[in-house]
Write a protein that binds this DNA or RNA. Structure first.
Lengths: 307, 307
DNA sequence: CTGTTAGCGCTTTCAA
DNA sequence: TTGAAAGCGCTAACAG
């Protein structure tokens, strides 16, 4: 048994003849090593967990793809789980992944302040957070500089002369929403314009949410001249609702988004938006986790500039 | 050790008092059962593999989400791999999944006639194919009735009076493309219109591919009055290329697609298309595989009607 | 009801 | 260079 093991894993102390014989036979018999047994012994499963909120979201779809490619190049497997923005489902998913003894976890928390997230981050499992992080967190993280991105794109509207710029946000606990709100505020304040709470409105971060925002706009006495949406899906939903109501864009309302998903370039007029380096987030996150697991490299915070 | 195992897995022969003591202690110690060890013993890993070509494609994104939710409800893990439409990467991915001893595989082959696919399908691992299948295959499959869908949507164009209807296809070995071509042909022949090879053109199944198709159209002497695209991405790419060239739609050209991805409803004019019941494909595929693994139910072919 | 033993397939250590 | 033995954490079978 031992000699076979040594031959197949390419160790030195096997004669060329024996190795040859073993490899041929293994091929004929269709032998596939059992990684479960190896993992049990070594205490490492060569498998990474990825826990996101929703694969359907194009941002996560791209992220998953980038992570998968990076891991597979490193010979690691990918256990995927989704929380569908549900804290309880997230808790169960983490338990499921831990039972399977993942070597590390890439994770987008639903609520960065949930107790089980805190527990996870102070535990032994190597974790790299993607895109969302608790305030004051010092561990591994890769994400977009949301504050900067929001300031950029909201500032763009202001620089075009808009003074009543509304901001669509989301109502759940996503840290990205808080950060984009801060950037929006900074853009205003930096230009000496007062921040007005009543120009901020929370809707779901989806095309449908954008549609709801159109109703909110309609119900207001003085209409904003521009809107900075939390993400592209909202922005497109808003644009379409307005266009379908016969409003000409961008004359009737200027809209900017966030994410630069493919869709942003496919609507007309094309959506002005700020790009998250999504692929890079996935790749760097996976690489950071691999370095942590293999070399024990301490994980850092990487804030990528938006574009 | 045994008593602890029995208590945690909820077996009967443990006194209530002992069980209580064990559960409390396990909680305090943060004990998580090691599924690798259990799997090694039982010969089942409680984990399913899902091998798709590309997570970025919205069709697969929805599929992955549906599969994940079905599996997690059944207490199963999901090992995800992607082939990026590359046959060799696909072969390696299958080996990777087998090493990890998945209990079954949900699979979208790049090329249904590749030797390693044949080998896989005649092996012992329970497999359910999604969306694509080899000719004459008799095992587990869930997919859309592409022939019927194509006939439906191409027929729609013909019924509107179009006579020169072109078909965009893809050039690789995807069985879905062959089937949609057959449906297109049937729609023509059923109405007594001759099939013309020169009205069929292969481009990549993406927005960009649709853009290429616009160039192909321009280069033709007599222009088709309508186009049936392989999928929505192609259709949208074509529409945008024409619109950006100043052509009015649908007056200048009628376009229909296939898939009914979200994007189809977000372009203007909204794209006429035929819906694949994507979520259902994912859910039924996963359920079929679970039934096969747990009850030994023989897997069938399920051809879902398009919409 | 509880404890002991064996063994899943592999790799590490040590002996031949 | 090869083989034998031990043990990773768990559960099935059986003894107490």
């Amino acid at each position: 048994v031992n000699t076979v093991s040594r031959a197949l894993t390419g160790k030195r102390d096997v004669s060329a003849k024996t190795r040859e014989r073993i490899l041929v036979l293994a091929g004929q018999l269709g032998y596939t090593p059992n990684l479960l047994a190896r993992s049990l012994l070594r205490g490492r499963s060569a498998t990474i967990g990825l826990l996101v909120t929703d694969c359907t979201n194009p941002f996560y779809a791209v992220l998953i793809q980038a992570v998968e490619e990076t891991l597979s190049r490193a010979g690691l497997g990918l256990l995927l789980a989704t929380s569908t923005e549900d804290v309880e489902k997230e808790r169960l998913a983490i338990a499921m992944l831990r039972e399977r003894r993942i070597d590390g976890l890439l994770f987008t928390p639903v609520d960065v302040d949930a107790p089980h997230v805190h527990e996870l981050l102070s535990g032994d499992l190597p974790v790299v957070l993607l895109g969302r992080r608790p305030a004051g967190y010092k561990g591994g993280f890769v994400g977009t500089d949301n504050v900067r991105g929001a300031r950029l794109v909201a500032g763009h509207l202001l620089d075009q002369g808009h003074r009543r710029v509304a901001h669509l946000t989301r109502e759940d606990a996503a840290s990205s929403a808080r950060e984009r709100l801060i950037g929006y505020r900074k853009a205003l304040v930096g230009r000496g314009i007062a921040f007005r709470r009543d120009l901020v409105h929370g809707v779901p971060p989806s095309v449908k949410g954008g549609g709801l925002a159109a109703e909110w706009l309609d119900a207001r006495a003085t209409r904003p001249t521009a809107v900075f949406a939390y993400n592209d899906a909202q922005a497109v939903g808003l644009m379409l609702a307005l266009q379908d109501a016969g409003i000409e864009l961008p004359a009737g309302l200027s809209v900017v988004g966030f994410d630069d998903i493919e869709l942003a370039s496919l609507v007309r007029p094309a959506l002005t938006t700020v790009a998250q380096p999504t692929e890079e987030i996935g790749r760097l996150g996976a690489e950071m986790l691999i370095a942590r697991i293999r070399e024990g490299t301490r994980s850092r915070m990487i804030l990528l500039p938006p574009n």
